[in-house]
Amino acid sequence: MSKKFKNATIIEKANVYFDGKVNSRTVQTTEGKMITLGFMQPGEYTFTTDAAELMEVINGSMKIKQASSDIWEDFPSGTAFNVPKNSSFQVQVNTFADYCCSYLED
């Protein structure tokens, strides 16, 4: 599932969350799409969304519970899930998770 982003701008400053256990870098494509490439250390995290997102697990694995569900779902390397805009989701990471978050248009 490896991607290359040609002619993209990478924002140098890291996005750091949860005392440094989650961090990402923002990438803006020439088409204006915003993407974050990130890494999560073991832990449990809750994220909120303003825009709809496509979360791709590049390496490692995550367990996800969407705000609209009571069920935890496994997402190993090579899988993806969508998150609705103006929502939230919980993440459990047991070892690590390398991810790509694409912000989707409405």
Rank of each mutant, 00 (worst) to 15 (best):
V22D: 07
D106I: 11
K21Q: 11
T26L: 07
A80Q: 11
S24Y: 01
F81C: 05
I11Q: 11
V57M: 07
S88F: 14
A80L: 04
L37V: 10
E105D: 12
T30H: 12
Y17V: 04
M62N: 08
E56Q: 15
K85D: 14
K65E: 10
G38K: 03
T46L: 13
F81T: 03
Q66D: 11
I35G: 01
P42D: 03
Y99E: 07
P84D: 15
K85C: 02
V22F: 05
P76K: 12
V16K: 01
T30R: 12
T36D: 03
V93Y: 06
E105Q: 07
Q92K: 15
Q92F: 11
E31I: 00
C101E: 00
I71Y: 00
N15W: 01
F75M: 08
F5Q: 02
S68P: 00
D19F: 02
D70Y: 08
D74L: 15
P42T: 05
T29L: 03
G20V: 04
K85S: 13
T95R: 14
Y45A: 04
N94M: 03
A51I: 11
A97E: 12
K13G: 00
K6V: 05
T26M: 06
F96P: 06
C101H: 06
D70L: 06
K3E: 10
D74C: 08
N59A: 15
E12P: 00
E73P: 00
C100M: 10
I35M: 01
Y45N: 00
F81N: 02
D50I: 14
E73V: 12
F81V: 01
G32R: 03
F39Y: 15
N86D: 13
K3W: 07
N94S: 09
T95A: 15
M62K: 02
K6F: 09
I35H: 01
G60L: 08
F89N: 09
G78Q: 08
L54A: 01
I64D: 00
K6A: 11
S24W: 01
Q66V: 06
G32A: 06
C101G: 02
K85Y: 10
Q66R: 08
C101W: 02
G78M: 05
I11M: 10
Q92E: 14
V16Y: 03
Y45E: 05
S87N: 14
M34Q: 09
W72L: 06
I10Y: 13
E105A: 04
E44W: 04
S77Y: 01
A8V: 05
M1S: 14
D98E: 14
N94K: 06
S24P: 02
N82K: 09
K21L: 13
V57Q: 09
N23H: 14
F18P: 06
I10M: 13
P84L: 09
F39T: 09
Y45I: 04
Q90M: 13
E44G: 04
V27A: 00
N23W: 12
N86A: 11
Y17S: 10
S2F: 12
V16T: 09
K4E: 06
I58P: 03
S2E: 11
P84H: 07
A14W: 11
I11F: 11
I58L: 15
